[in-house]
Amino acid sequence: MVELKQVSVVYGEQHALRRVSLSVEKGEFVFLVGATGAGKSTLFKLLYGELRPTEGEVWVLGQPLHQIKPRELPYLRRRMGIVPQDYPLLPRKTVWENIAYGLRAIGYNETAVRQRVAQVLALVGLNEQARQMPSQLSGGEAQRAAIARAIANHPPLLIADEPTANLDPDTSWEIIELLMRINLRGATVIVSTHNRTIVDRACQRVVAMDRGQIISDVPRGGYPVELDRLYASVML
């Protein structure tokens, strides 16, 4: 599903990623954890083709993203659901329009748009908020709307960048539960987060990053002790 082979990304003289290798199989649920600047966002940008590796190979859904032609990229992205960290929703459009916007942008006809929007709104529990503007939504509702838009096209791979940022613990867990439900329906899910509580509670695969490298990869567990040690040493 996703494979990174010895991938490095260098900005000027700074290494954002150093020889990272990672493999995610179909149907997995993976947490990507690490402090700010650890390289999580860089790794995500590689996965959806916003960035090219300086060296190494990036394979997503069987496609070599390290050498994909720009005109082929949109068609690959249609098979991914992407929940970006910044500004997930368009502020001048209602929840319904936000979800429909994505489908219209990739050429769905109006009948299909109406069907799919209704289905995903029901799935994420936002039927009643369909006509509300993003500014009228709570943080959790906004994230659910962003997730709804990302999965509206039935993507086999869902990538969510910090979907629990700035959310209270209960709402954060609601979001993770939603993502796990989507995972149970067959989608591979990769989520980046700082939230140790939900990582511990979800008990899924956890990949930890620090300074552009993967420092641990636990198949099924909680927040990695390696990161705790690192933070402790920094604090001391």
Binding site: Y75, R77, Y87, A105
Partner: peptide, 14 residues
């Protein structure tokens, strides 16, 4: 830019 990025991430062609 926000709309452009959202469209691009959703798979809209250039």
């Amino acid at each position: 830019q926000r709309e452009v990025r959202v469209m691009a991430l959703l798979g809209a062609t250039l």
